Amino acid sequence: MHSLKIITTLLGAIALVRGQTAGTTTTTWDCCEPACGYTSNLSAGARGPVRSCNKSNGPAAAGAQNACFTQGGQAFSCSSYQPIIISNTLSYGFAGHGNTATATCCKCYQFTWTSGAAAGKSMIVQAINAGGITDTDFDIYTPGGGVGDYNACTAQYGAPAQGWGRQYGGVTSDSQCSQLPSNLQAGCHWRWQWAGGDINNWQITYKQVNCPSQLTSISGCTPATI
């Protein structure tokens, strides 16, 4: 019976591992209107779309164009998409995930880092952006996380032409968070003070989960229940 219990335990552990998918994390804060801000991009059964904001972080006007793709556009990302600390080992947040918006928009995922300073810590994130991101990576919305290919932060906040810090990856230390507007600094400090480092290219395992109401109340988008 003792051997049978050991075998059963091992099989259960293997099943748990197989229920997770391996991936990596990166960071972003390009100030663009999220791709999931378009109703046509929502995943099946989702109710939304994801909220977008004006230059002052109020609700974007109906029909406002994405500031990253239209000169003079007035639809930006919202400052409320910064990470939220729940405990010493868990944070909530938002991320870009997947190359196809309709496959991921508004769905939530829980991941645990398996490398880097945050190894053993977890996040639950809601996908509010997609496109140009692999199906196993999460581009975490973190102020000072790098503007990447597009930059609306200059229009919204007067950021440098390549964003704060590196164009890809953003600031390189906690002290550089002081370069950001005061309303974004907490989310920038989160990366260094809670996660403990750069986050970019740290390894994770993840699975889809039902969204916490704290996230859907911020984004305005609720996915189909799993």
Rank of each mutant, 00 (worst) to 15 (best):
Q71K: 15
Q71L: 09
F76R: 09
I85F: 10
I85R: 14
S87P: 10
T89D: 10
T89Y: 14
L90Q: 12
S91E: 04
S91W: 05
Y92Q: 11
G93P: 07
A95F: 00
A95D: 03
H97E: 02
H97F: 00
N99Y: 03
N99G: 10
T100Q: 10
T100R: 07
A103H: 06
C105H: 04
K107I: 03
Y109F: 15
Y109D: 07
Y109W: 13
Q110K: 15
F111E: 02
F111M: 11
F111D: 04
F111P: 04
T112K: 14
T112L: 14
W113V: 04
T114Y: 01
T114L: 13
S115D: 05
G116L: 02
G116S: 06
G116E: 00
G116C: 03
A117E: 06
A119P: 01
A119F: 12
K121S: 00
K121V: 00
K121C: 01
S122W: 00
S122C: 01
I128A: 02
A130M: 11
A130T: 06
G131Q: 07
G131H: 13
I133S: 01
I133W: 04
I133E: 06
D135P: 02
D137P: 05
D137R: 15
D137C: 15
F138V: 00
I140E: 11
T142A: 09
T142Q: 14
P143E: 13
G145S: 07
G145M: 12
V147H: 04
Y150A: 14
Y150R: 11
N151F: 10
A152P: 04
A155K: 11
Y157S: 04
Y157F: 11
Y157V: 11
Y157L: 07
A159K: 01
G165S: 12
Q167Y: 07
Y168K: 09
G170Q: 02
V171A: 03
D174S: 14
S175V: 08
S175P: 05
Q176W: 11
Q176P: 05
C177T: 04
Q179N: 10
Q179V: 09
S182D: 08
N183W: 09
N183F: 12
N183H: 13
L184Q: 03
L184S: 07
Q185D: 05
Q185T: 07
G187N: 05
C188P: 03
C188G: 10
C188A: 14
W190F: 15
W194C: 08
W194T: 02
A195H: 06
G197K: 09
G197S: 11
N201Q: 13
N201F: 14
W202H: 12
W202S: 11
Q203R: 15
I204G: 01
Y206V: 02
Y206T: 05
K207A: 15
Q208W: 12
